[in-house]
Structures are given as structure tokens and as C-alpha cells.
Simulated scan of single mutants.
Amino acid sequence: MNATARPRYAPTLRRLHWLMALLILVTYVLIEQRGLFPRGSAGRSAMMQGHFWSGIAIFLLAWWRLVSRKRNGAPAITPPLDWFSAVVAKTVHLLLYAFFIVMPVLGIMTAWSDGKQVLIPFTGVALPALMPVDKPLAHSLEDLHGAIGTAFYWVIGLHVLAAIWHHRIRRDDTLKRML
């Protein structure tokens, strides 16, 4: 069955969507709640390493999702969107994919340039740093990573509100395609 005749996204795309949504939530909780632990503590380190690895997982899953989306396409929205709404929807989705790729890259660049290790989970082995320690660069990258992360909160919020608007106000099948 082709993508336009199918009423829902392919199962792989639906699973990846919700898994990535959960990982994004975990990533934000880990970084926002790291302050519960004092600097230099094992708890804070665990929060940071969890943040790093959930970000890396999002990066890898984004590529899998892009390949799956290319292979499977997207089911048509019923009733179809007007031109303006379709452009806004496409723009928001492109921004989301850009965030899924750019944020983890900025995050790992920040860690490496700050001299932090990204440890392979449950080992004492670190990924090799592909950047030299450069504290001023690390600070700039951290600021950029944080600013884009804040913008990402808004884009995610817009995405969620749009799904609710489509479901409750417009009464189309946009949300149902992802369930």
C-alpha cells in the first residue's frame, strides 16, 4: 500500500516518533535537574552522561527516521491542508529534524572543547575527543546549544499545539496518523 493511500504513518515511523519524544523529554529532564546534585558529584556526572547519551541516541534515531520517512513517505491529511498551513507544517517539521541533528552535534562539541569525557555507558571508556580543549570555544558553543535548546522548547510546543488544533478544532486526521 502506498503512503498516500495509507491512513497512518508506517509503524517504524510511529515508533520512532514516540521514542524520540520520550528521549527528548529525558534529555531535558536530565540537564534541567542536574542542579539537584553538587558539582563534581557522581549524581551530577550521571545526569550529564545520561544527557550526552540520550542526545546521541536522538541524533542516531533522527537519521534512521529520515531514511524511513524517505522510504515510506507520509500519509495524506484528510481533509487536505490549505497552502499556507501546509507550508507552516513543512517548515516546523524541517526545524524539528534540524534540531534533532544540530543539537547533539553542538552538545558533543561543547563537551569535548570543555575537556569533558563522553563515557560509553557502563564502562570507564570515553569516546575519543575529536576536538582540542578550548574553554572560550566551549563557552560559546554551550551558549549556542542553550539558546537553540530554548528555541526548541517553543518549536516542540508549537508542534504539540498544532497536533491538538488539528485534532480538536480542524478535526482532521493529522494526530491519528501518528497514533
Results as ranks from 00 to 15, higher is better:
M1T: 14
N2I: 14
P7T: 15
L13D: 06
R14A: 10
R14S: 03
H17R: 09
H17Y: 09
L19C: 11
M20T: 15
M20N: 14
A21N: 06
L22E: 05
L23Q: 06
T27G: 11
Y28G: 14
V29L: 15
V29N: 04
I31M: 11
E32S: 12
R34Q: 15
F37I: 10
P38K: 14
P38D: 15
P38M: 12
G40H: 09
A42G: 04
R44A: 07
A46R: 11
Q49H: 08
G50V: 11
W53K: 10
S54G: 03
I58C: 02
L60D: 01
W63T: 10
W64P: 00
R65T: 03
V67Y: 02
R71C: 00
A74F: 01
I77L: 01
T78M: 04
P80E: 00
P80V: 01
W83K: 13
W83E: 11
F84K: 02
F84P: 01
S85E: 07
A86H: 00
A86D: 01
V87H: 06
V88P: 00
A89N: 02
L94E: 02
Y97V: 04
F99Q: 03
I101S: 01
P104F: 02
P104K: 01
V105K: 01
V105T: 03
L106V: 00
I108W: 01
M109E: 00
S113M: 08
D114F: 06
K116S: 12
K116M: 13
V118H: 03
V118Q: 02
I120T: 08
I120V: 10
P121F: 04
P121R: 07
G124C: 04
A126E: 07
A126T: 05
P128F: 07
A129E: 07
A129F: 08
M131R: 11
M131E: 02
V133D: 03
V133L: 09
D134R: 12
K135L: 14
K135T: 11
L137A: 14
A138S: 15
H139A: 14
S140Y: 06
S140L: 08
S140F: 05
D143K: 12
L144V: 15
H145A: 13
A147F: 04
A147T: 07
A147W: 10
I148D: 03
I148G: 08
I148S: 09
G149I: 01
T150E: 05
T150N: 10
Y153M: 11
Y153T: 10
Y153Q: 08
V155H: 05
V155P: 05
H159T: 13
L161E: 03
A162I: 05
A162C: 09
A163L: 09
I164A: 13
I164M: 11
I164F: 14
H166N: 08
H166L: 06
H166D: 05
I169C: 08
R170H: 11
R171Q: 14
D173E: 10
T174I: 12
T174F: 11
T174G: 04
T174L: 14
L175D: 07
K176Y: 09
R177M: 14
L179E: 08
